[in-house]
Simulated assay, not measured.
Amino acid sequence: MNILFINSIGRNKFGGGEKWMVNAAKGLTDRGHNVVLASKRNSRLLEYAAGRGVRTEAMEIRGDFSPLATLKIAAWMKKHQTDILICNLNKDVRVAGLAARLVGRPVVLARHGMLLCSKKWKHKLSLTRLTDGIITNSRTIKEAYAGYGWFDENFVKVIYNGLTIPGNVTAFDFAARYPGKKIIYSAGRLSKQKGFEYLIAAAAMLQRKRNDLIFAISGEGKLEAELKSKVKALGIEDTFVFLGFTPDIYPCLKGCDLFVLASLFEGMPNVVMEAMAMQKPVVATDVNGARELMGASTESLRCDTGLIIPPKDPAAIAEAIEKIIDNPAAMAAFGKAGRERVETHFTVPIMVDNLEKHLKAKLAEKARRG
């Protein structure tokens, strides 16, 4: 198959959706498919993809409507006989999806790692007219879209994220920097979505009761100054530290004691999967995909891999941390169960298997329709 992934995210942005796209492109490339990943010139995404051995192409999409970009992408797909186009953002669907319709050949799929469309007419129009399906990573997103009444039962396909569990990870030596302390770690963009303000509030609550915890965050973003100001105002600068952008968080995950996800919304939170792969217990807010990833049922928050708590609730975060941080046996059991769950359900080979089968099925479906 000739496959084009396109993702017009900002040049300096890189998150779970971008990591999924590179993993998918690399996995399909390794299976003999002709795969290209396109994004903005000099973007962090293209640099990361090229470093992983994925073919890249610079394509600029700046808005929802760009006739010149549409014509350029259409000419590229016609020249390279593209069979499958997988779009990331809504504007990618509108610009590149329209290009695919002009060419007539490619199957067009939107990949939604989060709930990316609401019940707006422009979302309905672009997704029903310019795509042949949606790939998402959690049942909760599929169920939300089913409630819109726009799509038939098979239009939205759930394909869980996958990761490659690294073999030899050297743990970051938190003990050398913070001797005698227990490390609570988190990672993500410093944005409203990630809920770090609630984690900061929970840290302040715990500091009033004990002095053996360090909270460390990897990430950068527009709220950095605001979050640091909150930490300073609460007087917890010595126990709540910002590590900045961390290209490889596995050493930090392996070196910490407990991972916390405080997000307000997610798709399938990759960082939780990575923490589980490093055999770390997880405290996570009850956001899209968290229950599926951590093994909780749809009716209950109970799971073997950690604790699931309500979002926007610092007291719940603090309580969950205290519930397990002083219980080494429980933490070890949660970590072991998490690693086993990732190995069974969430590896890149499993993800690529499911994706490849789905792409072939969509091509066959298009061929039957003529």
Rank of each mutant, 00 (worst) to 15 (best):
K254N: 04
R129F: 09
F215D: 00
L258V: 15
I6M: 02
A202G: 00
S39T: 12
L223D: 10
A171I: 04
D64A: 13
A69M: 05
E18T: 08
R339P: 05
V93I: 13
V93S: 08
I317D: 02
T136N: 10
Y250C: 01
V272H: 03
T170C: 01
I61K: 05
F245H: 11
R11K: 14
R339S: 08
P310I: 06
L37W: 03
T70G: 04
G244L: 11
A144W: 02
M205W: 01
Y160G: 01
G221E: 06
E319H: 13
K312R: 15
I61N: 02
T305W: 12
N88D: 03
G51C: 11
T56F: 02
V271E: 02
L46R: 04
V93A: 06
I141F: 15
L102D: 06
I86K: 10
L85D: 08
E143K: 15
C256H: 08
F265P: 07
K366C: 04
Y145C: 00
K230V: 03
L130M: 15
A284K: 04
K192V: 14
W121N: 10
L359E: 04
R341Q: 03
R291M: 05
T239P: 00
K72T: 00
G17E: 10
V22H: 00
D212K: 09
G15C: 06
N354Q: 15
A262M: 10
F172C: 01
W20G: 01
A329S: 15
F334L: 05
F242W: 05
M59Q: 05
